[in-house]
């Protein structure tokens, strides 16, 4: 029972890591940018969700509001920051690093703005359903209705992702622009627009992660920083290129950390994340779902 319950808790937190990892992988695939600002974009979106909850007491209104905010912030980050940099810088070492530094700057900027508006103190809002664990007979496990809801929401998001990416024209354009932007252009894809849409989807996904994780922690201008790190670890475990990899990476990390927290020590969780990462990279340097290459590619 203890093992099963630990596993379920791992799946629940892993679902949130997966969402964050999906956001990071999407941006990486569409613009080759390691987006540190994702934590900032998500925190700003979550604060707006918090605003809705404090005014309406309606979690189910807060989620879509945060998602729209996340999408808008994501699109703006691409249009105002990444696009001009890519247009101006064509080659050299700066090409790779400038956008990353820019996202770090954006992260700092958003944190300051959020701090100015809402203050640095910890905010709290309640989960929409019970956070008390399920009870079976005389035993109560840590896994709650809210954990179930988190897993369910993550599954819904992932099903939507799978559908959009594999079955729609937008998904095809997103993949083509990510893999081979020049060929995509020559096929008529408006690559700049498609990239911005990628940033927007990533922003919305990060916002969901923020709104889902916050009832279990609390909200402050940098309360999602740890989630960003764990999201990156998940994304790299999954090979950074692969959406399925991001999901599996998040789940592996979630379950692994839950086991360590439960059976080894609570203080080991953070370093353990990196041990998991490094072990996986040593065994499979491209990550679990690193790109396969076919004939002479």
């Amino acid at each position: 029972m203890r093992l099963l319950s630990t596993f379920l808790i791992g799946v629940s937190s892993g679902s949130i890591y997966s969402l964050m990892a999906l956001a990071l992988v999407l941006v990486w695939r569409s613009t080759r940018v390691v987006n540190f600002a994702q934590a900032g974009q998500a925190i700003a979106s979550t604060y707006l969700g918090y605003l809705v909850i404090t005014h309406t007491n309606n979690y189910w209104l807060a989620l879509p509001v945060a998602m729209v905010a996340g999408a808008v912030i994501g699109a703006l980050a691409d249009i105002a920051l990444i696009r001009p940099l890519n247009r101006r810088i064509k080659s050299g070492p700066v090409l790779e690093i400038a956008p990353v530094i820019a996202t770090l700057g954006l992260l700092g900027l958003i944190r300051s703005l959020v701090g100015m508006i809402w203050g640095g103190d910890l905010k709290q809002y309640r989960a929409p359903v019970s956070i008390n664990g399920f009870t079976f007979g005389h035993t109560t496990i840590p896994f709650s209705r809210f954990n179930l809801l988190i897993v369910f929401t993550a599954i819904v998001v992932m099903v939507i992702f799978a559908f959009v990416f594999q079955r729609t024209g937008l998904g095809l354009a997103l993949r083509a622009a990510a893999f081979q932007p020049e060929i995509a252009r020559l096929a008529g894809v408006r690559v700049d627009l498609v990239r911005t849409i990628g940033w927007a989807i990533a922003g919305a996904t990060g916002a969901i992660a923020g709104v889902l994780v916050t009832p279990s922690t609390s909200l402050s201008p940098n309360s999602l920083d740890l989630l960003l790190v764990l999201g990156f670890v998940s994304a790299v475990i999954g090979g950074l290129e692969s959406l399925i990899g991001a999901v599996i990476g998040g789940l592996i990390l979630g379950i692994g950390l839950a086991l360590i927290l439960e059976y080894v020590s609570t203080s080991l969780a953070f370093p353990a994340a990196f041990v998991v990462l490094i072990l996986i990279l040593i065994v499979k340097p491209a990550g679990l779902f690193g790109m396969k290459r076919g004939r002479d590619a």
Binding site: G169, L172, F179
Partner: peptide
């Protein structure tokens, strides 16, 4: 120049 990661059908659809 095809997109190697996509299927033949997807390359055409593109």
């Amino acid at each position: 120049t095809v997109i190697p990661e996509l299927t033949v059908k997807e390359n055409l659809a593109l």
